[in-house]
Amino acid sequence: MTTGKAFATTRAEGRAALVGYLPAGFPDVPGAIEALEVMVDCGCDVIEIGLPYSDPVMDGPTIQAAAQRALEGGVRTTDVLRTVEAVAATGTPTVVMTYWNPVERYGVERFATDLANAGGAGLITPDLTPDSAEEWIAAADARDLDKVFLVAPSSTDQRLRYTAEACRGFIYATAVMGVTGARASTSELAGPLVARTRAVTDLPIGVGLGVSNGDQAAEVASYADAVIVGSAFVRPLLDADDRASGLKALATLTEDLAAGVRRG
């Protein structure tokens, strides 16, 4: 199921979508599935499942810690696909966010096939730009999968156009020059980036990096088509004394963010 379905709904409702991220296998494989189901139940429109990787250069300390814990727990690529299958079964479009080497190692064709069979919507690729993505683009196009590449405040207009042309589903606009992680205030770079991206594409534009509460979500939702939240969802699970209280905090946060995207 593609993310296009979720964006059709949110556009009809005149609001932005809430995209929620968690790494697979954190705190363990069933625990991540349970947490992702809470996020679906409490208002995420699209789910983004992280594939834990040993060298996550775009992630800040929070997601690094969660991914490291998942790897120490022995999470495998097949577990990530299993997690996709469980979450996609809820009917919520589910994409995988992954650094490139694990996909190449698994086999690009094989990964695309297994992702499609699991009901996954596509991939977000933080260290793969369209310049190097020929094999993935072909595999995704053959299976009707979303290709979500990133744009950044430093992207030239030429690269914005080039990247947008290669995307399907939505475009991931990184709102800050920096790694993932909750920030006290949203970036002043995000608005201009979204405006520049809008000028070159009709695809929905999601804004990520830094959003951690409903008010920030509302602010971003006022100019973006999707609010992408990652580290803030990981944080309550890292901080909680036990799983039940972690899930409760996660539910409260999701509801706050879901209300935020409806205010924007």
């Binding site: 933080p126 310049d131 950044a152 992207s155």
Partner: peptide, 20 residues
Amino acid sequence: DAGRFGDFGGRFMPEALMAA
């Protein structure tokens, strides 16, 4: 021009660093 030595090399990096 793409930084490749035969099958190797290239540029697998975040878009944020591409301009740099």
